[in-house]
């Protein structure tokens, strides 16, 4: 017998028993960017049984600074991220079953992906998809681990159905976007810190060591040297629509989805976001000022980063010019508006 996992088995909370449990578990990883590649590599090296990786995007040069499974050759050939990730992960550990899916996840896909899944790891870049993950998690009683980064700041929380508050309880509203890694940048160490937290929590869940879970909302800024950890258990809301006594799982319904429409003959996709309410176009313009051309009038904001132009109206509606591809348009929308 080879000793691939010997050091992990020597770690007594895991041991032989935990290692065997890990090999029987299936993890669904949504997103194959910075957090996704970091979590995937740790779980595959640690010997998880199966991992399904889902992402809609391809590898770009701007990914290589922090997305650890990708190479220059992947960027040159615009390889879909999940394909490049699967190749690399199979070189690392051929015993792990790796399923790669190039899709833009909607509630429909999500309900097909969660069959037999023991844990969902969030490595996404927007709250629309996280609220879908949150509802699916509650509906099918699958734990999930929220993680996010921007600039030098990271945050994570482990959500256990029927035990902890859910993301809906914590947010108390649907976010209207915010800073993103494409507007405020991001440094690799903070990615690794969130990955470390998420994957440690994952190992605890997958090896049935739940008593070791952190059970706190944690955040840290590796540049300003701040950190916080808060017990948020009092936020659990018994009338929450996602995890309360009479759940309706609102984010799995069509009405609460971000809507897209191709505007025929205009090479444009229209995006209507979930969160209603007036956008502060001044604040948004300030975020985009350094990365492209920003023009404004009293009705709208126009942001050009060739070959694309995105126009946002006060009500949050966005026109993405320069594409007829809904998936590409959504990708650009979340990249710049959060």
């Amino acid at each position: 017998m080879n000793d691939r996992y010997s050091r992990q088995i020597l770690f007594s909370p895991i041991g032989q028993v935990g290692q065997k449990k890990l090999a029987e578990k299936h993890v669904l990883l949504i997103g194959a960017g910075a957090l996704g590649t970091g979590n995937a590599e740790i779980l595959v090296r640690s010997g998880v049984g199966k991992i399904t990786i889902v992402d809609r995007d391809y590898v770009e040069w701007s990914n290589l600074q922090r997305q650890q499974l990708y190479t220059e050759s992947d960027a040159n050939s615009r390889m879909p991220k999940v394909i490049a990730a699967k190749r690399r992960l199979e070189e690392i550990n051929r015993d792990v079953q790796i399923e790669a899916k190039i899709i833009d996840v909607t509630p429909l896909e999500m309900s097909q992906l969660t069959d037999g899944v023991d844990l969902i790891i969030d490595a996404t870049d927007n709250f629309d998809i996280r609220l879908i993950i949150n509802d699916i998690s509650q509906k099918h009683h699958i734990p999930w681990i929220y993680g996010a980064v921007v600039a030098s700041y990271g945050i994570s929380y482990t959500i256990l159905p029927n035990e902890t508050p859910c993301l809906h309880c914590l947010l108390q509203q649907v976010p209207m976007g915010g800073m993103t890694c494409d507007t405020a940048g991001v440094i690799s160490p903070v990615v690794q810190m969130v990955v470390a937290h998420q994957s440690a929590e994952a190992l605890k869940i997958l090896t049935d060591n739940r008593e070791a879970l952190r059970r706190q909302l944690i955040s840290f800024d590796l540049w300003t040297n701040q950190q916080a950890s808060i017990d948020v258990s009092t936020f659990k809301n018994t009338s929450c629509h996602s995890c309360g006594q009479a759940p309706t799982y609102p984010h799995l319904n069509y009405e609460s989805q971000t809507k897209t429409a191709v505007l025929c003959g205009r090479d444009t996709v229209q995006i209507r976001p979930t969160a209603a309410g007036n956008r502060d176009l001044e604040t948004i313009a300030a975020r985009l000022f350094n990365i492209g051309k920003v023009e404004q009038n009293s009705f709208l904001l126009s942001f050009t980063n060739e070959p694309h132009r995105l126009v946002m109206f006060h009500d949050g509606r966005v026109l993405v010019h320069g594409t007829n591809d809904v998936t590409e348009a959504k990708s650009l929308y979340y990249r710049y508006f959060g």
Partner: peptide, 9 residues
């Protein structure tokens, strides 16, 4: 203690 929710990943 302030913990801000962010969306990047």
């Amino acid at each position: 203690e302030l913990v801000q929710f962010v969306g990047g990943g």
